[in-house]
Simulated scan of single mutants.
Amino acid sequence: MTGPARPVRVLVCDDQALVRAGYATIFAAQPGLEVVGEASDGSAAVRSAGRLLPDVVVMDIRMPGMDGIEATRRLAGPDAVAPARVLVVTTFHTDEYVYEALRAGASGFLLKDATPSQLVDGVRTIAAGESLLAPAVTRRLIGRYASRIRPAERSGTPDGGPLGSLTPRELQALRLIATGRSNAEIAEELVISRETAKTYVSRILTKLDLRDRVQAVVLAYRVGLVSAQD
């Protein structure tokens, strides 16, 4: 007989004390979530994460000193010593750095007008090893910032380079992932079962050595498989 599951350890990083307190109150009221610390900027988040080893870091982007992008890179990027999963919470209309945060290793994002239940669900989703990309928001957000990718980064082609290992069917699935489709929508568009769609997604991530759907979206835009007009 197994005991109760270990609670999800959450570190909250935001430069506004009221925001941090609000998040902490929301999470503390939820079974299975434990707030292990708070940080007021990116440097403090990196230091606290090294000491507290959270499962999920809820990260603001615009902060004095080290911003959320650099902190995310250090916490979840390829050189992270003890990688944590980062959930970026941002303001869509004013924050122009979300795309860079995803490239830095964030596992997903929510808008700051998200409801408490959406915030809690987001943390649980990230902690479970999945990415958080609401399809409608993904199409708007990634499309908006894809134009910021330098031309040299769009030199890859579906026939070679990073995507050369994918089958034509997997390329179709990757295009749909990159435009924000869920597994159910992928299944509908490709006329396959949801389980098969899930298998395609898993194979794509494995073949391309990607952590999650967020990285798949970023890669698809980087190599020019899709564009902001798709």
Rank of each mutant, 00 (worst) to 15 (best):
V81K: 11
V36W: 08
G108C: 09
L33M: 08
G65Q: 10
D41Y: 14
R73A: 15
M59P: 00
A82N: 12
L102N: 03
D67A: 06
G105L: 07
S107H: 15
R51S: 14
Y97S: 13
L75A: 09
A76S: 15
D95Y: 07
V35K: 01
A71V: 05
G68A: 08
E34D: 13
V58H: 00
A29N: 10
A29E: 14
R51T: 13
S48N: 07
G105R: 13
Y97Q: 12
A49C: 09
F109K: 02
S107L: 02
A71I: 10
V35C: 13
P31F: 12
S107M: 04
A45N: 10
S40F: 05
A104D: 10
V46Q: 06
G68D: 09
D60N: 11
F109S: 01
I61D: 02
A104W: 13
A71C: 12
V86E: 01
I61C: 06
G105F: 07
M63I: 05
H93V: 08
A29L: 14
V46A: 06
V36A: 09
L102P: 01
V86Y: 06
L87S: 02
G105I: 06
E38R: 11
H93I: 04
R62H: 08
P54Y: 14
A101H: 08
M59Q: 07
E100K: 13
T94M: 03
A82K: 05
R51P: 00
L102A: 04
G68N: 07
T72S: 03
G42C: 06
G42S: 08
G108L: 05
V88Q: 05
A76E: 02
V98W: 02
D55L: 06
Y97M: 11
P31A: 11
L87P: 01
A84P: 00
T94Q: 12
S107N: 08
A49R: 11
A84S: 15
